[in-house]
């Protein structure tokens, strides 16, 4: 007997809502808290309808305090709940940084597993939507470099729901980053009900033998366009959506570069200290002798994200990615 799974066409932000809804239905202890997540449904409508469905004891408008939201979520998580804490924007997580760095990430280690913090912190992030200052920060590497945190970034509606469900089921704290540029850019068939997209696994979006391209989040759209242009020039790209930034999918990265011998890494976060450096060291550790050209990185600059009149200059463009692809192939 075949069972056909029902699907709905959803945007990424709707898929995120659906992921929370499915888990809240299934588990009484899953709760949502943050600024404006109740009646308002979140400033991006990511929690739209949840307070009507689950009530204000489980979908909670908190006072305006990120340290408060994350710190109390740690306590809730240690004592039987599964909090999903929403940061209004990643650029406003900083007051809560102390709580993540000094507690959420290390309570398991400090107590040899006696206390754990199974919580999810969701945060929209990234530039390119003409947002005001600070709203466009891409600071994922503050957290990938933080022992004890998992960091994930979906790039499409299907992954968003499946990865959010996996994040909620994860026994440890997960930072779930939602690229604002992808929130409503496409609709996709998303299965009703529960399904998992595993954390720690990248996805190959396009198979090719000439150049590996590693990217995530909003940059997937950029590299997909670049790969198309490259194809017109006869260069076949192996396009990998990393999806989980910590821990990286080492096997897929290694397998891809061992096939192509060339790599271009793309992220909008600043180059220095960015994930590109971690991927580079991974390529070095696993595949050095397979490489036929130095790896190229196309990244944001070592500057604050400029105000939006200049943000298109800051963000990696498909043209810059194509240039990098040509550079590694012509080496």
């Amino acid at each position: 007997m075949t069972t056909l799974v029902d699907t709905k066409k959803l945007t990424m932000v709707q898929a995120v809502t659906d992921g929370m809804r499915v888990m809240m239905k299934e588990h009484e202890n899953v709760i949502v808290l943050g600024e404006d997540v109740g009646q308002n449904g979140g400033v991006f409508r990511a929690t739209d309808g949840l307070v009507a469905e689950f009530g204000d004891q489980r979908v909670i408008d908190t006072p305006l305090a990120e340290s408060g939201i994350i710190g109390t979520s740690i306590g809730l998580a240690m004592n039987g709940f599964k909090p999903i804490a929403e940061m209004q924007f990643l650029g406003f997580i900083y007051p809560g940084f102390n709580q993540i760095m000094t507690h959420a990430s290390r309570i398991r280690a400090r107590t040899l597993g006696s206390f754990t913090v199974p919580m999810v912190i969701r945060a929209p992030f990234g530039a390119g939507v003409r947002a005001p200052e600070i709203h466009s920060d891409s600071v994922e590497s503050l957290f990938t470099g933080m022992p004890g945190m998992k960091v994930v970034v979906p790039s499409n509606p299907y992954d968003a729901k499946g990865m959010l469900i996996s994040a909620i089921e994860d026994p440890d704290p997960v930072l779930f980053l939602e690229p604002m540029r992808c929130y409503r850019s496409t609709k996709m068939d998303v299965p009703d009900g529960k399904y998992n997209v595993p954390l720690g696994k990248a996805a190959r979006l396009q198979e090719g033998e000439d150049v590996s391209i590693f990217a995530y989040g909003a940059m997937i759209d950029v590299v997909t366009k670049a790969a198309k242009t490259a194809e017109e020039k006869g260069i076949k790209c192996d396009v990998i959506d990393l999806r989980t930034l910590y821990p990286l999918d080492k096997d897929m990265i290694a397998e891809s570069v061992q096939k192509t011998g060339r790599a271009v890494i793309v992220h909008e976060a600043p180059g220095t200290g960015g994930l590109g450096e971690t991927i580079l060291s991974l390529i070095n550790d696993t595949s050095f002798l397979h490489m036929r050209a130095p790896v190229e990185r196309v990244t944001g600059f070592d500057t604050p994200v400029p105000m939006f009149a200049l943000e298109d200059h800051y963000l990696p463009s498909a043209e810059r990615v194509v240039q990098a692809i040509e550079k590694v192939t012509q080496f």
């Binding site: 220095t272 600059f301 070592d302 500057t303 009149a309 200049l310 200059h313 800051y314």
Partner: peptide
């Protein structure tokens, strides 16, 4: 329109080499 150099040239008193 602003020039993109505005984004690079005011982060420090003097641009360090990465910038």
């Amino acid at each position: 329109a602003p020039h993109y150099n505005d984004m690079f040239d005011h982060v420090f008193a003097q641009n360090p080499w990465p910038i």
